[in-house]
């Protein structure tokens, strides 16, 4: 079943010119896709159009939303309200949608991302990894059908990043969320996604798609698997070629 469908999406900005040129894609329900590409290839713009935060100049977008709170977005920065506690930040979407979460809703999502001890803390009292967990918990609190992530782990240290990647793999599979991730990390894209899309900053289109035939959620051992290494190598080679064609 197709969950997201884009047809001939085009987008240009006054300062940078064309960023997306007739991009089409179909994401199946419950799938995890990663968007990779050099700077200026339109990854983030494509993600914002997918989530509805940005309007395209041309083309159509279809998202089978069934209600409010179906779409969640995790930003590159944690984007937490500094004056609210962890629990209050997680409750925010429910309050904005006028559908307050129950205590069990909050407990569930806090347990899901491992935030139990920090629920009463202010964001300033948390580490970068913990803040990103809160951001993820807030996004998952509405049990969204669609989860869009814009380089969420870019600012984290390597160990925290690997840990959160594994947790995200389990969470998205468990909840059956249709997920699209923008990242600069080839290894992250391959570890998490069913399909990796490589965007070109030259043509402003999808250059190539790579399928990763490994069931999700993936375990740490997958990073040592031959399939993983091969796909990472293949994408890297193409990435280098794309970079030199700019």
């Amino acid at each position: 079943m197709i969950a997201i469908q884009l047809e001939n999406i085009g987008k240009a900005f006054p300062k940078t010119g064309t960023v997306l040129n007739a991009v089409s894609l179909k994401v199946e329900k419950g799938a995890f896709w990663s968007l990779l590409g050099p700077s200026g290839s339109g990854k983030t713009t494509l993600l914002r159009i997918l989530s509805g935060l940005e309007e395209s100049d041309s083309g159509t977008r279809q998202l089978n939303e069934s209600g409010e709170g179906d779409v969640a977005f995790v930003f590159q920065e944690p984007a937490l309200l500094p004056w609210l506690t962890v629990e209050e930040n997680i409750r925010l979407p429910g309050e904005l949608l006028r559908k307050p979460f129950t205590s069990s809703d909050v407990d569930r999502v806090i347990a899901l991302v491992g935030l139990g001890a920090a629920r009463g803390h202010l964001p300033s009292e948390l580490s970068g990894g913990m803040k990103m967990r809160v951001s993820l918990a807030r996004a998952l609190a509405t049990l969204p059908q669609y989860l869009f992530l814009d380089e969420p782990f870019a600012a984290l240290d390597e160990v925290t990043r690997l840990e959160l990647e594994e947790e995200l793999s389990v969470i998205t599979k468990t909840l059956g969320t249709t997920t699209v991730l923008v990242t600069h990390s080839i290894t992250e894209a391959v570890f998490l996604a069913d399909r990796v899309l490589l965007l070109s900053a030259h043509t402003h289109q999808i250059d190539r798609e790579f399928a990763i035939d490994e069931p999700r959620p993936r375990k740490r051992t997958f990073r040592a698997a031959e399939t993983y290494t091969m796909v990472v190598h293949e994408i890297r080679e193409r990435f280098v070629t794309l970079g030199s064609t700019r």
């Binding site: 935060l53 977005f73 984007a79 904005l96 949608l97």
Partner: peptide, 18 residues
């Protein structure tokens, strides 16, 4: 006000008052 937070509020269809 933080641009990402403004996006977040828009995503959850927050009222002008909120």
């Amino acid at each position: 006000a933080n641009a990402s937070l403004l996006d977040l509020f828009r995503l959850y269809r927050a009222s002008e008052r909120d």
